[in-house]
Design a protein around this nucleic acid. Structure first.
Lengths: 230, 230
DNA sequence: CGGCCCCTTGATTATATTCAACCCTTGTGG
DNA sequence: CCACAAGGGTTGAATATAATCAAGGGGCCG
């Protein structure tokens, strides 16, 4: 299963790396300021020795953790500016996988001591990511399935969303770059429950499902009430 | 409800603050390097303007978030060295309440720019707290009630626990400074379910319940298997 | 056109919640 | 010193919610 994902790395964006090489190694070798990678590429493996810390410049990445029996949790969804590749001790605590084509920069961990500007930037970003995780703990611990999915959709399309951006196709719809299974792993549900929640939100007229991966929020107020906007 | 908690502040440790004053104000005024506070004292309120950032020197603190309808989630349990009082924008994202008598230092947020050593310390600590939150997301999203409680108990009594410390009464037992409701709010369960899980762990011989708030782990291996030790 | 992957929906079952009663400990006041 | 009240904890029975098991329906690519 681990191999199956890695197989996709070299091919998913058209350029081939050394066969069998992990993307982590490719990044390790390149001194490039920003490494471009395709979608569905595994960047890090939970448990691997943690030599570097990563900044996402562009794109979307998910961080995942596994239980020994295979249950998976997507612990964080990252966007531009977010940081990953954290370690407690000397191993990565999460796997990292791109959702869409992305640009990533990697820093040697030692650079944190020397580069004050980098450290300051990471500090600010860590604070922001901690806040997001706090909110997510509330979602996972205390919200119903419908509430979780509403929360997820609002998160994809923040309030002050300017129309006409590249990822927003004209109207107010969003492309969801995750499968139902990935959404379920993010929200602590099963894929069937996520699917039912989408249908229920549609039935209630809160969202429109243009396609399975194209959603439009019809009634933001009700969605926010569901998601418990504080 | 908010008042009910604050009522306890002035009295819980014998010394009285100014009547009606919040502990946050007491901390604000004192230039003391370490402010001593009693147990069950509210240090911060979610939503209040975030002027300072706090370090826990000694004791135990829990961070909580509320939904509009009153559902509560304990998002983090803090020990010595941990940092709290985070903000996204200009408001605290969590309330903070002591579980036991504690010592806290508060820093003006501006100090982060000036004090490089402080920033470096917080950066390291943020990384550690992010890792803990990642692990907790896995617990909240993917573990059964029994597994969650096992995880909680292991967390209270880490592996390399040296005997004879102040908080370990001779044998390998731990005092739990939280009610069943607080544990439930931490694990995303109800207090009844937590109680049943304790009973089940006892029935299986994995733990001994000396008292409701005094637990001893009898079979660490089985507990770790339950909690999915990676 | 066919196969594959993902998504949706239905029926059944498992798990945790809710509602309710009772118990134990602790602290207080007669 | 005992009785009692209050707060937390435990346990049982009924219920709700999401998981599981199972079948069928697109859309997309070869």
């Amino acid at each position: 299963m681990r191999q199956a994902i890695e197989d996709r790395i070299g091919t998913s964006h058209g350029r081939s790396h050394a066969p069998g090489a992990e993307l982590g190694h490719a990044l390790l070798d390149g001194p490039a300021p920003g490494q471009r990678v395709g979608g569905h590429a595994v960047l890090l493996h939970e448990g691997d020795p943690a030599r570097r810390i990563m900044e996402l410049v562009e794109g979307a990445v998910m961080l995942t953790k596994l239980l020994p029996d295979g249950r998976r949790q997507v612990v964080e969804l990252l966007g531009p500016g977010d940081v990953f590749g954290l370690a407690c001790g000397d191993a990565y605590v999460c796997s990292a996988e791109t959702l869409t084509a992305s640009v990533v920069v990697a820093h040697e961990r030692g650079a944190l001591e020397r580069d004050g500007a980098l450290a300051a930037r990471l500090l600010r970003r860590f604070e922001s990511q901690l806040c997001t995780l706090h909110a997510h703990a509330l979602v996972l611990g205390r919200m119903s399935a419908l509430e979780r999915v509403a929360f997820f959709l609002l998160r994809l399309m923040p309030e002050g969303r300017q129309p006409g951006r590249g990822d927003a196709p004209l109207d107010g719809s969003v492309h969801i770059a995750m499968t139902r299974q990935e959404i379920a792993d993010f929200l602590g549900l099963t894929l069937e429950t996520v699917s039912r929640a989408f249908s229920e939100l549609k039935r209630r007229g809160l969202v429109a499902l243009l396609r399975a991966d194209e959603v439009r929020i019809r009634d933001r107020g009700s969605m926010e009430r569901l998601a418990g906007a504080a």
